[in-house]
């Protein structure tokens, strides 16, 4: 590994360390709480809170390595949550007692798979850009959420489910374990499998990939199914604990997920990106939110700062990349 790749892949982690140091020191002066920012429980909570957007962002990484994008994940997230919570109130499900839980999860995950497959098939069979297809499905899926229950929240609190969601194993929360498991699986997929190899090849040069006999359409379909599944999984993890979903939940999740992916160094144009760096991007954003809150800044300040940092990071990345262009040709 040469210095440049090290710099690029390590940058997000260096940024995280810088955030930790900054908020710890700034917290000593500005925070009203007497707890240190780097408190162990606080960090555990941070990982847990990273999970919903994190799980989606990890899936978004492989979509973006393909050179595609999925704007419908927030709506998929909401619809999967509605299906999960509502299905637990159906009479036959109630009769099953706690055995309704795995079934409700399955319904939610299937919802995600079906919505993802619709996106994937449209991108494959119509050849319309993924941005347009998922812009349409974002609106459409959100429409389904409202059709389901109008403006009303869908609620079902199941205490077994809440206990499961709040459980801690080796200190880490259930949601954190899901985040880490998805990270591990997708890391293996992108770095070690044929599917991962093809993802990079298609994103980098689609024509060359077609000429090498790679089936681009089915490849896209699988990735959209994957991200639909992950958006639903994210909903399952989050709403198992909260037990109530508003029809507006998950709005802007697609943009937060894309922000985390881009912050992690994945190129919008495709062909380049890393799952581990996306995890870094997710944690960095959550640290910013939490840290700015810790030193007394409001949500509006948080959004402003994250926006500025995103642009600054991409500017720096451009500078680094440009240097690479002048490299020696052998």
């Amino acid at each position: 590994m040469n210095i440049q790749t090290l710099l690029k892949q390590g940058a997000i982690w260096a940024f995280i360390v810088a955030e930790l140091i900054f908020f710890t020191i700034a917290g000593d002066f500005l925070s009203t709480s007497d707890k240190s920012f780097m408190d162990f429980d606080n960090m555990l909570l941070l990982l847990k809170q990273s999970a919903p957007i994190g799980i989606i962002a990890l899936g978004m990484t492989i979509i973006m390595i393909n050179g595609n994008i999925d704007l419908s994940v927030g709506a998929t997230f909401a619809l999967a949550a509605v299906v999960m919570l509502d299905s637990m109130t159906w009479p036959f499900m109630v009769a099953l007692g706690d055995w309704s839980i795995p079934l409700a999860w399955t319904f939610a995950l299937l919802t995600g798979v079906v919505l993802g497959a619709i996106n994937g098939l449209l991108v494959w069979k119509t050849g319309v850009d993924a941005f347009i297809v998922t812009l349409g499905s974002m609106l459409g899926y959100r429409g389904l959420v409202f059709m389901y229950n109008g403006e009303n929240p869908t609620s079902k609190l199941n205490w077994t489910l809440v206990d499961f969601a709040e459980a801690q194993f080796l200190s880490l929360h259930t949601a954190t374990w899901f985040l880490l498991a998805v990270t591990l699986v997708l890391w293996l997929v992108t770095t070690k499998t044929v599917h991962g190899r093809n993802a990079y090849a298609i994103g980098n040069n689609r024509e060359a990939a077609v000429n090498a006999g790679i089936k681009v359409g089915p490849h896209f379909l699988w990735n959209f199914i994957l991200i639909g599944f992950l958006a639903a999984l994210s909903a399952v993890v989050f709403y198992s604990e909260s037990g109530s979903v508003n029809p507006n939940d998950g709005m802007l999740y697609e943009l937060w997920a894309i922000t985390a992916v881009v912050l992690g160094g994945t190129k919008l144009s495709g062909g380049y990106g890393s799952i581990i760096s996306t995890l870094g991007g997710v944690i960095a954003i959550q640290l910013l939110r939490k840290g700015l809150g810790h030193i007394g800044a409001g949500t509006e300040t948080v959004n402003l700062v994250i926006g500025l940092i995103l642009i600054a990071v991409l500017f720096l990345d451009r500078q680094l990349n440009r240097k690479g262009k002048e490299e020696l040709k052998i």
């Binding site: 090849a201 980098n204 006999g213």
Partner: peptide
């Protein structure tokens, strides 16, 4: 460059691209 190679990929991965599914 446009039709034959995945320029951002390394030499080995480019060379094995059509048959990588048989090399598992």
């Amino acid at each position: 460059k446009a039709q034959g190679l995945v320029l951002g990929m390394n030499c080995r991965d480019n060379m094995t691209l059509p048959q990588v599914s048989d090399l598992t």
